[in-house]
């Protein structure tokens, strides 16, 4: 099996003494859509920073596409893993959208012509082409988020990592983000997100990692989010669709639906099987 990310016994303590990770071991398959869930302070963001080489392992190891993350190859790792920060204002700082998207490719020493092509492609991917000459501070929060994603896509990383991508987004922007992530994954990229949004994770991801207090509580398919002991242990809540089916007494379904559409289809099917009364 090919793995995009292999983490073994990773531990990390912040400068102020807070222990953020306590022996995390996990693997992410190449080309997968992985959601890392956990409450605030579970260590999700610290873990993501290790994937991009911003934080280097204090204990244990992190391998990206077979390359061990250390000081010698952190630049290579940053080329392989694109990290989108939670707050676009932390990431988007250039005077124009174009400049900001070009920032990454320029740092990696690409020639001007190649940068222009990549910026165009990245802005097209997030549907922000017409805003290339705008000042990022004058865009909406959702648009700035898309610029932040474009800035990472322009580097053409093999792994795309997003920290809380849904934070403060309106429903329409969430939908746009969903489409962008789907497309990137279909193009062969491994996509990893850290989120609180169990509904999104349940619907979108094919791999789930649940974290609690710097440790991995569970890892597996989306069925992880149907297990009560994990959900309660991590301080999360069941996805809405799962909650709905859990409340119907006596109903046993082979596989819980993942989306509202699937749930509606299942309910319709069950209703058809109920004998009609005159």
């Amino acid at each position: 099996m090919d793995y995009a990310v292999e983490i073994h016994n990773l531990a990390f303590r912040h400068k102020d003494g807070t222990v953020a990770l306590r022996g995390v071991t996990m693997k992410v398959k190449k080309g997968s859509k992985t959601a890392i869930l956990g409450h605030n302070g579970a260590g999700k963001s610290t873990l993501l920073f290790h994937l991009n080489g911003i934080y280097l392992p204090q204990q244990g190891s992190v391998k990206i596409l077979g390359v061990e993350v250390n000081r010698k190859n952190e630049k290579l790792v940053r080329k392989m893993v694109g990290l989108v920060f939670q707050d676009p204002d932390d990431q988007v700082f250039s005077p124009t959208v174009w400049d900001d998207v070009a920032f990454g490719p320029a740092n990696f020493g690409l020639p001007r012509e190649e940068i222009e092509i990549r910026v165009k492609e990245a802005l097209r991917a997030v549907v922000m082409e017409e805003f290339a000459d705008k000042m990022p501070f004058h865009l909406s929060y959702g648009q700035r988020k898309r610029v932040a994603i474009a800035g990472v896509l322009a580097v053409k990383p093999e792994i795309l990592v997003l920290d809380e991508p849904h934070a403060f987004l309106d429903p329409k922007s969430k939908e746009n983000l969903f489409d962008i992530l789907e497309k990137e994954n279909q193009d062969g990229r491994t996509v990893i997100i850290a989120t609180h949004d169990v509904d999104f994770a349940y619907e979108w991801a094919d791999e789930i990692v649940v974290m609690k207090e710097g440790r991995v509580l569970a890892q597996g398919g989306t069925e992880v989010l149907c297990r009560e002991e994990i959900i309660k242990g991590a301080g999360l809540e069941f996805p809405k669709v799962v909650r709905f089916f859990n409340r119907i007494h006596g109903l046993k379904v082979e596989k819980a639906p993942k989306t509202i559409d699937e749930a509606a289809e299942l309910v319709n099917k069950l209703l058809k099987n109920i004998p009609q009364r005159d």
Binding site: I54, R78, K79, F85, D90, Q91, N107
Partner: peptide
């Protein structure tokens, strides 16, 4: 955070 975001995109 800004500095970390810059590092993550290859700033040297």
């Amino acid at each position: 955070r800004v500095y970390q975001a810059m590092l993550s995109r290859g700033y040297g």
